[in-house]
Design a protein around this nucleic acid. Structure first.
Lengths: 201, 201
DNA sequence: GTCTATATGTTGATAGAC
DNA sequence: GTCTATCAACATATAGAC
């Protein structure tokens, strides 16, 4: 689905408002004024406040999933693959904290059919993470007692960034993301905490 | 501060409502009806909706902190102490998920002086966690590159339970909490993933 | 597509009877 | 302390002029 410039502008405004105040506390007037429009203009481009949330949430989920998949496909070795996945997925949640908050915290503000669509998408994240853990175990690179639970925990590490990471407090985003990636390798029992290029001249 | 029975009943109702729908989307009428009272009764016992949130948030933070501190004091050995802390703190977030959601997600719905009070309290969690990590490093039991960041990450693991853990999906709470505790030991480079009683007949 | 104006219901909070 | 009744402000969403 393609959006017009006016639609995008309202979607950006809705994203900001939902992330700042939550869906329930956001008014359509707030969205309109952030987009520099009248309250009525919202309904020219979007059918309802909930539909705005659905659009924002769907785009956010797709963007985050694309980030995780692209990281997963960039490396063949399970150790390096997991490291890159956690690094990039952590960075995504740091760089798109507003989007991430809406994605993670406003799920049950969606109506029934919309929530179903999103929940379907969300299974993919867990699935991609479990895949790399199983590949690592099969290759003898990881030692994992509970693949599913450990995958969930690693995702927790990345996702929870949107709750506490504050760019105003001048923490180094790369350092935080790298720490998460290193911790993930420890969680799966990978021998070295920082992967090195092996078999390279 | 002590609360009357009527006050407690309204606080419980407010907790349920805030956890389910968020502060912004909760109406005072909803709180009143959950407590089996008229809308006006709310204001006999509490001065405003925000004051209800503050009371709920304050009690939640104190309860969670008491849980973490009691776990920290129950063990002397850093390995066993960290394991117990993560086990108990994870269980708290599973058993008090509603309370936990309000505690973690409704911070910026508080007004300025109230938020300051809560933020002050929240520093304690990080502080207690950093203490045990430093004790473990000093004792040669842990190998940690970034004590502060690793402490934050371990807290993430526990706190994020309130976002995804669903008792209706029949996961075993003890197993989830135990996995978190084991993963925390791996994150700090503790030699064994499951601590054993050493020097015991 | 934009706006002003407004319909219709809901909100947080209060007044005042019992 | 409880309630019903109500206020003023604000909510989502729509109508209709330009």
């Amino acid at each position: 689905m393609e959006y017009s410039a006016a639609q995008k502008r309202l979607l950006d405004a809705a994203l900001d408002a939902f992330a700042e105040r939550g869906f329930g506390a956001t008014t359509t007037r707030d969205i309109a004024s952030r987009a520099g429009r009248s309250p009525a203009a919202v309904y020219v481009h979007h059918s309802s406040k909930e539909e705005l949330l659905f659009a924002v949430s769907l785009m956010g989920h797709r963007d985050a999933l694309a980030c995780l998949l692209s990281a997963a496909e960039s490396e063949a070795d399970p150790v390096r693959r997991l490291h890159t996945m956690v690094l990039e997925f952590s960075r995504w949640h740091i760089d798109h904290a507003k989007r991430g908050r809406v994605v993670q915290y406003e799920l049950n503000a969606l109506n029934e059919p919309h929530r179903d669509t999103i929940v379907e998408l969300r299974r993919e994240f867990q699935s991609v993470m479990v895949d790399v853990l199983q590949a690592g175990v099969a290759a003898g690179a990881f030692s994992v007692a509970e693949v599913h639970g450990t995958g969930r925990a690693i995702l927790s590490l990345c996702v929870d960034l949107v709750r506490w990471f504050d760019p105003a407090q001048s923490r180094d985003p790369d350092r935080v993301a790298l720490l998460n990636a290193d911790l993930a390798l420890r969680m799966v029992g990978a021998p070295s905490s920082r992967p090195r290029r092996v078999g390279f001249p």
